[in-house]
């Protein structure tokens, strides 16, 4: 059962990923990206990482991609369209070469990486959201805090960038 689902999610992810970069209409690209995110979430579920799968949907599909679409819908893309996809042949050659390279590396490794302590059995024992929570607030507390500070910086930066100068400031500059 699992290999069938894996094959489905993996194949659709690849096809959706290709469509994301090759479709002509940017909104269609957004929908392809949505399909890609959904199917990658499916792969996470197969790995017993339901928490990561759902968070991926909530954050990437539910918030970030909606904002992308928000912007794409406001753009008038009729004029920009023709500048895309001029050199399909070059892209395909490049992507093909990279794929062959990746396949060679993968085949040489015989798919046998080092396995961490988070095996399926270990995760099933305490539940995966509990496992993530305990790890995040014990072993990985410092990285977690650093990411938090980074995000705070990003929020402050966004506010500074988005804040239009008030008329008083503008008149002050002119003097």
């Amino acid at each position: 059962m699992v290999p069938i689902f894996f094959a489905y999610f993996a194949l659709v992810s690849i096809v959706a990923g290709l469509l994301t970069v090759s479709l002509r209409n940017p909104v269609h690209c957004g929908i392809a990206l949505l399909a890609l995110l959904g199917h990658v979430a499916g792969l996470f579920v197969l790995l017993h990482a339901e928490f990561v799968a759902v968070v991926q949907i909530i954050i990437y599909a539910g918030a970030i991609l909606i904002l992308y679409l928000f912007v794409l819908m406001l753009l008038n893309l009729k004029t920009e369209e023709r500048y895309f996809h001029r050199r399909h042949a070059w892209y395909i050659t490049g992507v093909g070469a990279l794929t062959v390279e990746l396949l060679m590396v993968l085949l040489a490794s015989r798919f046998s990486g080092a396995k961490g302590p988070a095996t399926v059995a270990a995760v099933e024992e305490i539940g995966n959201s509990t496992a993530i929570g305990i790890l995040m607030f014990s072993d990985y507390l410092l990285p977690f805090e650093i990411v938090g500070v980074f995000l705070l910086g990003a929020i402050v930066g966004a506010i500074v960038l988005a804040k239009t100068p008030s008329p008083a400031d503008l008149s002050g500059d002119e003097r």
């Binding site: 339901e50 759902v54 949907i57 909530i58 599909a61």
Partner: peptide, 17 residues
């Protein structure tokens, strides 16, 4: 499922599409 409420929130956000 052990992430029930997050599952509901995830699909609610998909519905907005």
């Amino acid at each position: 499922i052990n992430i029930g409420i997050l599952y509901v929130l995830a699909f609610a956000s998909i519905g907005a599409y």
